[in-house]
Design a protein around this nucleic acid. Sequence first.
DNA 1: TACTTTCGTGTAATCGATTACATAATTATT
DNA 2: AATAATTATGTAATCGATTACACGAAAGTA
Lengths: 342, 342
Amino acid sequence: MSEKITIYDIAKKLNITAATVSRALNNNPKIKESTRELVLKTAASMNYKQNKLALALKSGRSNNIGVIVPRIDSNFFASVIRGIEEELHPNGYQVIICQTHEDPKRENENLYTLIDAQVDGILMSVSDVSNENDEAFHNVLKKNVPLVFFDRSKHIEGVSSVTINDFKGGYMATKHLIDEGCRCIAHLSGDQSLEIFKNRFLGYKQALLDNGMTFNEKYVIQSKSSLEAGKEAVDILLGYDIPPDAIFSSSDFAALGAIQELRERNISIPKEFCVGGFSNEPFTKFMELSITSVDQSPLEMGKMAARVFLEQVDKTQTIKIEKKVVLTPELHIRKSSSRTTS
Amino acid sequence: MSEKITIYDIAKKLNITAATVSRALNNNPKIKESTRELVLKTAASMNYKQNKLALALKSGRSNNIGVIVPRIDSNFFASVIRGIEEELHPNGYQVIICQTHEDPKRENENLYTLIDAQVDGILMSVSDVSNENDEAFHNVLKKNVPLVFFDRSKHIEGVSSVTINDFKGGYMATKHLIDEGCRCIAHLSGDQSLEIFKNRFLGYKQALLDNGMTFNEKYVIQSKSSLEAGKEAVDILLGYDIPPDAIFSSSDFAALGAIQELRERNISIPKEFCVGGFSNEPFTKFMELSITSVDQSPLEMGKMAARVFLEQVDKTQTIKIEKKVVLTPELHIRKSSSRTTS
DNA sequence: TACTTTCGTGTAATCGATTACATAATTATT
DNA sequence: AATAATTATGTAATCGATTACACGAAAGTA
């Protein structure tokens, strides 16, 4: 069928050794110009292709990097991966995708599998926030494989990360609602054991305090990232003696659910009630009543994570320093909270 | 730093040869039970991990498969990839992602890169529909690397594919509009050189003819997959002496644009005008005025493509047959076209 | 006891490329 | 012309695992 051409085949044809062929192909300066040309020409004519596996075995570098995400089919993660791929492709790296589905076991398994596959680095957004199963991580570090966290990170000494300033995102969104005249702002927080959600909450709280508003626990509803959760939250909030007149949700999906429930109850948005979400999911801007949301610039995050990885493997850089990149989120103001401009 | 343990290290420790260690680890029946146990125990205690690169070089199989898509950050492709990953992961394969951005050059480059990387198979959705640059594909086939197309395929002898029945999708959507009482249905078609769009168009046309309606070229607007294109199309269509009272769009984005433009003109949907899209993008069901759309079951498509690949590499299967899997699309009827149920 | 099987293990080649070291070929130096 | 310096190429080990073949030891057979 398909004859795999190796440097030995070229060598035999030219009556020289594989070593010379290898050197010629690698532009080794010790090769006579005439032989180099001859080898290159012959290689091309024989349709020679370097076997990357052999190279990988010899060099110990596979030119593959692994990316671990909870799931790939979410706009956020897909965009991050796009950024990673676009940044690493020109550098000769291939991107291997792994999903955890938020399962710590799978996360560990993926880490071990990637190490087994001899990847040159691992970029990941963690699923397991507990510090119980850290052996897998330490195994990675022990093997000296560069590790970079993005979005959801763990505090492990010597590991770099690229995140956004979730605190600021929460702060900006809340401040905006205040500026629009909202007097009692509720918050739909996600899983508070995840730092990103914790920080969004803290930003929310600080914005309230900085602007002379009272912070009250009961206006913070811990909810999942789903339409249903948003609806339930509204149900609770509107039952209060003093119901809120705005919601800052850490999730766009919960924000959407909340909006649907509010409309169900004939509450006018943004006149009577304002809503803001987080993540800038595509649908937020497509809605007829477009939803204000905090953008996490996933593409940029992916590119940045890739760059941090590249810096780590840069040979000229002898000392490897833990690098914490924090991107600034951007608030996209839309109809769901625009009283002044609409 | 990190001491890589090889079978030679285990061999040395036990005063046996690497061959024996290898056999013991691979459950070779020729190994004495006692030595096998000893080797396994020692391997575990030394924290031995098989070097997949060495194995790959020796066996010629990398256990990686490549996936080429126009872009990863679209719900459709991300979902397909998710399906592929979930199906192949349990079989020990890693998934390598490549993007083409619809550029034929990149497509070719990716094909060559993946072959260079010795992937065990390639699953792809083509970007270049012309048959001009087919050398890259034939190179893949010559190298005997299994190739499977999904969604957008090319007709290459011996190559399997997994697609949906776009004709049927177009037919169903159009028939539905007819059933809702629409008398003049326009069509926003995509790039007609892509077979998927051609087939959706043909399905639309056939549905009209089968139901005693007249087909008229001028109600078919070739438009891109964007909101803007949808708006422009409406602008043209409403300028006709007899404007249509429904649109079947091959793209959800164009459908959304059309809806926005229709509302801008105070045309009531679905009462005066019905709209249906294609792809079942997440936003279609989130809209307040949810959009009827044809679902392509991307997850299932990905899994199916992976299964077709697995069948191809199945050693027990001596003869490799070109397999054309055609999935049936599903029409999701929503508010934008529901006159009868709403 | 002598001879054949069977079993378990060792030897060495192999996958394809790179590279330290050795050596041959060429050029430079006196 | 003889020697030193330089340049180009060959030799062989290496990366880590697998495996055809060889061989010694144990067990079975007559």
